[in-house]
């Protein structure tokens, strides 16, 4: 029995799922990010002075791309797994001869592919609209993957925890989205007053955005090594948690 075929089939299923819904899964986030670029970059951004030596549009672009990856990776794995729980199609994966870690890996890769697709399209459009420098191309790719892994894994954890769509929305509306917006996508934390500046250091998403900004622009609010450590650490913990929960059959096996 070759469980790798099962693993690749699960990935194919994920790609089929979001591919057939491209008008809902791929195109809107790309349009939204482009609108962000136009509104914040060209319209409102004209009135903002340079940050760390970059125009406002350049400064926010890495954060916008990172935000697109975060939202899409999270949304893909959480929606896919939660739908599978609701229509019980998850049972077909549990009873199939595929180890739990491969099932989790397939969901993560599904989120990764969608996150990278939207993130790459965003960066592509950004490069076409502005002259975006890529200070560290390899690191940019690495961070894209790491951020997608983190939020795909978080999506899996949320989908396992949630009892209904409201629960899932709670995670998105009250945890993920505020953390992104308070994570320095649109500003440098050095622009924040004292207490908010200090609070930002407790927001893991700040390190993801800041690290990603360093990879693209070569500038950062904190030491890049610190961001790298947080990104890799959070990726390891979230992925391990998702695998563990799946392995024990949390809310899946009675």
């Amino acid at each position: 029995m070759n469980s790798w075929t099962g693993f690749f089939t699960l990935i194919e299923r994920e790609a089929y799922r979001f591919g057939r819904l491209a008008s809902q899964t791929i195109i809107p986030p790309v349009i939204m990010t482009t609108l962000f670029v136009l509104i914040f970059g060209y319209s409102l951004g004209e009135g903002i002075r340079q940050i760390s030596g970059f125009s406002y549009i350049h400064y926010i672009l890495p954060g916008l791309a990172g935000m697109a990856v975060i939202n899409n990776a999270y949304s893909n794995s959480s929606t896919s797994l939660f739908m599978a729980r609701m229509d019980r199609s998850i049972e077909t994966m549990i009873v199939a001869p595929i180890p739990a870690f491969k099932v989790v890996a397939a969901f993560v890769i599904g989120g990764l592919v969608r996150g990278l697709t939207v993130g790459s399209l965003t960066l592509l459009i950004a490069t076409m609209l502005t002259k975006l420098p890529f200070a560290h191309v390899g690191l940019t790719l690495l961070y894209l993957v790491a951020i997608a892994v983190i939020f795909s894994s978080l999506g899996i954890i949320s989908a396992l925890w949630a009892e209904d769509w409201d629960h899932l929305a709670v995670m998105t509306n009250f945890v993920i989205t505020p953390s992104i917006y308070l994570g320095g996508v649109f500003y440098s934390i050095h622009m924040l007053p004292g207490v908010w500046h200090r609070i930002s250091y407790f927001n893991p998403i700040f390190y993801l955005i800041d690290g990603f900004r360093f990879a693209i622009l070569g500038v950062s609010d904190v030491n890049p090594a610190c961001s790298a450590a947080v990104i890799l650490g959070v990726a390891t913990v979230t992925l391990a948690t998702a695998i563990y929960l799946f392995r024990i059959g949390y809310k899946l096996i009675v």
């Binding site: 075929t5 690749f8 699960l10 299923r13 799922r17 739908m83 229509d87 049972e91 077909t92 001869p97």
Partner: peptide, 25 residues
């Protein structure tokens, strides 16, 4: 199973093909 446990929005062909794939076909 007694109650359907499928991706309801997938075509029959895809449901069966994916199922075969899960088992290594």
């Amino acid at each position: 199973p007694q109650e359907p446990n499928v991706d309801r929005y997938f075509t029959l062909r895809k449901i069966l093909e994916f199922h075969g794939g899960y088992y290594g076909l």
